[in-house]
Simulated scan of single mutants.
Amino acid sequence: MQSRLLRSFLVVAEKSSITKAAEVLHISQPALTKSIMRLEKELGVALFERVPAGMRLTKYGEVLFHHAKVMENEYRHAISRIQELRDGRSGALRIGAGPVWLVSLLPPIVAELQKQQPGVAISLIGGVIDTLVPELINGELDLICVSLDFPNRSEIIKQKLFDIHHVLIADPSHPLASEVEVDALLIHKYPWMVLKSDYVGTERISSFFAANGLEPPKIAFETTSIHSLLQGVKSGSYIAHIPAQMLPLAHMTGLQEIKLKQPIWETTAGYAYRASVQLSEPMKAFMRLLQDINPATSSNLV
Rank of each mutant, 00 (worst) to 15 (best):
L136G: 01
L132D: 09
M246P: 08
I82T: 01
G54Q: 01
V133T: 09
S299G: 15
I157E: 11
Q291D: 09
Q114M: 15
C145P: 00
P191C: 10
Q117A: 14
I137V: 15
I205S: 03
H227V: 12
L39E: 01
L143T: 00
V11H: 07
M37E: 13
L43W: 06
K34T: 10
L255A: 05
A240H: 02
E62A: 07
A275H: 12
I258S: 04
I122H: 04
L143M: 08
R7P: 00
I242A: 02
Y273T: 05
L124T: 01
M287L: 12
L186M: 14
G61N: 08
L255N: 06
G270I: 07
M55G: 00
I137R: 14
A210M: 08
I219R: 07
L289I: 00
A13M: 05
L279I: 12
P175Q: 01
I205V: 15
V120N: 02
P99N: 08
L141N: 02
S298Y: 03
P248Q: 03
Y190W: 15
L32M: 06
G91N: 05
F221A: 09
V302N: 12
R89V: 08
L214F: 01
P134T: 06
S104M: 15
Q117T: 09
H67W: 11
Y60A: 15
V200T: 13
A210S: 14
G232H: 02
A296S: 11
T131M: 11
I79C: 05
P151C: 03
A121N: 13
H251E: 15
D142T: 09
P248I: 04
I242Q: 04
L301T: 12
K59W: 11
A97D: 05
D163G: 12
G54M: 06
A210C: 03
L85H: 02
K115M: 12
L143S: 05
P30H: 09
S123T: 11
M252L: 15
G201Q: 00
E135W: 12
G254E: 07
A296W: 03
K196D: 08
S147G: 01
Q291S: 10
A92N: 06
R38E: 13
P282T: 09
L113N: 01
E140G: 05
S80L: 11
I129G: 09
L102Y: 14
A46N: 10
Q114W: 03
L57N: 00
S35N: 09
M246F: 04
K59S: 14
I82D: 00
F208R: 03
E181I: 15
A210F: 11
